[in-house]
Lab assay of single mutants.
Amino acid sequence: IEKFKLLAEKVEEIVAKNARAEIDYSDAPDEFRDPLMDTLMTDPVRLPSGTVMDRSIILRHLLNSPTDPFNRQMLTESMLEPVPELKEQIQAWMREKQSSDH
């Protein structure tokens, strides 16, 4: 029984630690959010139409349809242009958020 109590305490400790580690990014500025999924972008790319999306989301879309989801023009992965300035701004915002939450 004592071992179970210790195990339960350890589990509670881990759960509390994980809860502290989770950071809420739901208040991200609109320009940091993917327009299709409304999630925080981690690897922004510009489509030929000028729309900026997260790379993982547009690549997932391209698996089903080789088109720009906003104007239905033909689109391939090679046409995606990285946006390193925005990526750095997002990373800086995330770092600031992490340091203010801890």
Rank of each mutant, 00 (worst) to 15 (best):
P48R: 03
E85K: 13
M53K: 01
L47R: 00
I57L: 04
E77G: 07
D43C: 08
N18I: 08
A16G: 11
D27H: 06
D38I: 12
V15F: 06
L75V: 03
H102D: 14
H102F: 08
E9L: 05
S78K: 11
E77Q: 06
R95M: 05
P35Q: 01
F4Y: 09
T76G: 03
M79F: 05
Q98E: 14
S26P: 06
E81D: 11
F4D: 08
E9K: 09
R72Y: 02
S100R: 09
I14F: 15
I23K: 14
I90T: 04
T42Y: 04
S99R: 11
N71H: 01
P82R: 06
E96N: 06
R55C: 02
E77T: 07
I58S: 01
F4S: 10
T76L: 10
M74I: 11
A28E: 00
M79R: 06
S100Y: 07
T39F: 08
N71Q: 00
T76R: 05
M53R: 01
R95S: 12
A16E: 12
A28P: 10
R95E: 07
P82Q: 07
S78N: 10
N64K: 02
M41L: 05
R95T: 14
E12T: 07
N64L: 04
M74F: 03
M37L: 14
V11W: 05
E81V: 13
I14V: 10
M94R: 14
S26L: 14
K10A: 08
M94T: 14
E13L: 06
V45F: 00
K3N: 13
L40M: 09
I57F: 14
D68H: 00
T42N: 15
V45A: 03
H61R: 01
K17M: 14
Y25A: 11
E9Y: 14
S49Y: 15
L36E: 04
L62V: 03
F4I: 11
T67S: 06
S26G: 13
E22Y: 13
Q98L: 10
R20E: 11
D30K: 15
T42A: 12
R46G: 04
D24Y: 12
S26C: 14
N71I: 02
S65V: 02
K97V: 07
L6V: 11
K5E: 09
N64I: 09
I1P: 02
R95K: 02
D27A: 06
R55S: 04
K10Q: 11
P29S: 04
Q91P: 01
A21P: 11
E12G: 08
I23S: 09
P44S: 00
A28G: 13
D24G: 11
D43Y: 04
E88D: 11
F32I: 02
Q73R: 06
E9G: 08
E12S: 09
P44A: 01
L86Q: 04
T42K: 05
S65L: 03
A92Y: 10
S99T: 13
E81W: 03
E13Q: 08
L7D: 04
T76N: 08
S56P: 08
S56T: 06
K10E: 13
D24H: 08
S49F: 15
N64P: 00
V11K: 07
A19L: 02
P84Q: 08
E77A: 05
L40Q: 03
E2G: 08
N64T: 04
N18P: 04
E96T: 15
T67N: 06
E31V: 10
S26N: 15
E2M: 11
E88Q: 09
E96S: 08
M79K: 06
N64D: 04
L40V: 14
M37K: 02
S65G: 03
D27Y: 07
Q98K: 14
D34H: 00
P29R: 06
A92G: 12
M37G: 02
M94I: 14
E88V: 11
D101G: 13
H61P: 01
P35V: 06
K3S: 05
T42S: 11
R95W: 04
D68G: 00
E13R: 05
E96K: 13
N18Q: 05
V15L: 12
P82K: 02
Q98S: 06
L86V: 05
P66R: 08
K5Q: 11
Q98V: 14
R60P: 01
P44T: 01
S26T: 13
P35C: 00
P48S: 03
H61L: 00
L6Y: 08
I90V: 13
K17V: 15
V83Q: 06
A21G: 07
L62P: 01
N64S: 06
D101K: 04
L47Q: 00
P29A: 04
H102S: 06
S78R: 12
L59V: 09
P29T: 07
W93K: 02
K3E: 06
S49A: 15
K17T: 13
R72P: 00
Q73P: 00
I14M: 13
G50C: 03
V11E: 12
V83K: 05
L86R: 06
F32V: 01
L47A: 08
S49T: 10
I23N: 10
F32S: 01
P84A: 13
R95Q: 10
I58N: 02
L40P: 04
Q73L: 12
V15K: 12
A19E: 13
M79I: 05
S78V: 03
R20G: 11
T39N: 07
P35R: 01
E12D: 13
D24T: 03
Q91K: 10
D38A: 06
T51P: 15
D43E: 13
I58M: 03
I14S: 10
M37R: 02
P69Q: 02
D43T: 02
S65F: 05
E77R: 08
E12W: 03
I58T: 04
P66F: 04
P69H: 00
P66S: 08
L80R: 00
R20W: 14
K97Y: 13
D54H: 02
T39P: 01
D30H: 06
K3Y: 05
E31D: 12
S26W: 15
D101A: 08
I57V: 13
E12K: 12
K97S: 08
E13H: 10
N71K: 01
Q73N: 07
I90A: 05
N18Y: 10
E96Q: 09
A28S: 13
M79V: 04
T76I: 06
K3H: 11
A92V: 12
V83G: 01
Q98R: 15
T39Y: 03
K5A: 11
M79T: 04
D101I: 06
M41T: 00
Q73E: 04
R33N: 08
D38Q: 01
K3T: 09
D30V: 09
L6F: 11
D34A: 00
K3V: 04
K10R: 12
A16S: 11
T39D: 15
E13K: 08
M94G: 11
A16R: 05
A8D: 09
E12Y: 13
D101S: 05
S26R: 09
A8E: 13
A16Q: 04
T76A: 06
L80F: 10
Y25V: 02
V52F: 06
D27G: 13
E88A: 14
M79L: 08
M41I: 08
S100T: 07
L36I: 15
S99Y: 01
D38S: 02
L40I: 10
R72D: 01
